[in-house]
Design a protein around this nucleic acid. Structure first.
Lengths: 208, 208
DNA sequence: GTCAGTTTAGAACAAACGTTCGATTTGTCC
DNA sequence: GGACAAATCGAACGTTTGTTCTAAACTGAC
């Protein structure tokens, strides 16, 4: 958080935190402005509307994740070309940017990124698709090259299942861990969790 | 759907369909009653409140899925005991009941079951946990027996990731397939999709 | 100090929400 | 056929929603 002082940043941070916890449609502007300590009208003044606020949040977070994914992929291609990139490297390049700040206390970033994928807020789906589809297609190429025996539609489906694991992890692990205190200790280390996710997804992608 | 005629069933079906598409918090009683072709007050008359309606839906669907899971597991234990149950069989026993009716036209059941897991409607989380935790613990035992080398917390985490794949598949595959028409054809067969999901999850659970 | 431009404050808006109520219709037994 | 319960209906309840408006407070340049 780092406690920014200007009103727009206070609104964005509060909105991200509340959206991550309660969902987008279920969070009102009054809750956001109360949490941010600013006036109700400030949202419409700075962002035009609730939709505008959401779009700005998407730009700030989701787009950043996707750009980081593409950069990581570009680095891998530069490193391995013309050889195919190992599947674990590809998977990690895709998953790690979304997991950033996962272990930090009170960081709503990963939970919000997860919720972005699954909250069907009207008009946001197209925006998400527009930002995500190019990334998916960009990864499917190198993925197909290391897994030539897997048919394209099947590879698409498996990538889709990997997405589900990531989103579920981002959105719900914290809450679920609270009910399994015995497991919570072992699942505290974010690097370890990322390793597990990468291993799980890579094995699922290449199985049989 | 089978077009039931009595009002409560019409409400339940319409609510399930709309909840699956737009989310629970984002769907109003007026939309539900309009879609069902009944009066607005009918919801509160038959179910007491919107919460009551949701609880009834959970009972009707989520509980049924979990009971089917336990029955499938019991059948496997009777078949294999005292030998450990193969991991693919275990995974399929867990995933198949939720995927039921997946390929049927206009069946909101799987999408709704998926949404049940991820929509943070107040008070529903506890109800879901109460119905799901016993099932999870019931499966973790046999799972641990076929994967003795995997530490318990790690096994819990991998099961969690499998849940994510399932939920994402149930909730979003239909919509995502619409944007990938080339893949939509190959992903039409629900049995094939279930096989892929089982293979993906089983490989992820046992990897390394 | 003054003035233009930007930001914030409080109050109010129409619309939509879940819920409640009394009247009306429907169905069923005597 | 009349009577009683169950079900449906239309209308309204009080809240809460996102949004808008105008006045007040602040900011920096001259």
């Amino acid at each position: 958080m780092a406690a920014p002082c200007d009103t727009p940043s206070r609104i964005l941070d509060a909105a991200e935190r509340l959206f991550a916890d309660r969902g987008i449609a279920a969070t009102s502007l009054r809750e956001i402005t109360r949490e941010a300590g600013v006036n109700l009208a400030a949202v419409n003044y700075h962002f035009g509307s609730k939709d505008g606020l959401i779009r700005e949040l998407v730009r700030r977070r989701f787009s950043a994740v996707n750009e980081a994914r593409l950069e990581a992929l570009a680095r891998l291609e530069a490193e391995y070309s013309p050889a195919p990139i190992p599947i674990e490297k590809l998977v990690r390049a895709f998953l790690e940017p979304a997991m950033r700040h996962f272990g930090e206390e009170d960081s709503a970033f990963p939970r919000f990124v997860g919720r972005l994928h699954l909250d069907p807020y009207p008009g946001m789906l197209q925006e998400l698709r527009g930002a995500f589809l190019p990334v998916l297609e960009r990864f499917l190429g190198p993925l197909q090259r290391v897994l030539p025996e897997v048919p394209r539609p099947v590879l698409f489906l498996r990538t889709f299942l990997m997405m589900g694991s990531l989103i579920h992890l981002l959105s719900n692990l914290r809450k679920h861990a609270e009910i399994f205190p015995a497991c919570a200790d072992a699942l505290r280390d974010p690097d370890r969790i990322l390793d597990e996710l990468v291993g799980f997804a890579a094995a699922g992608l290449r199985h049989d």
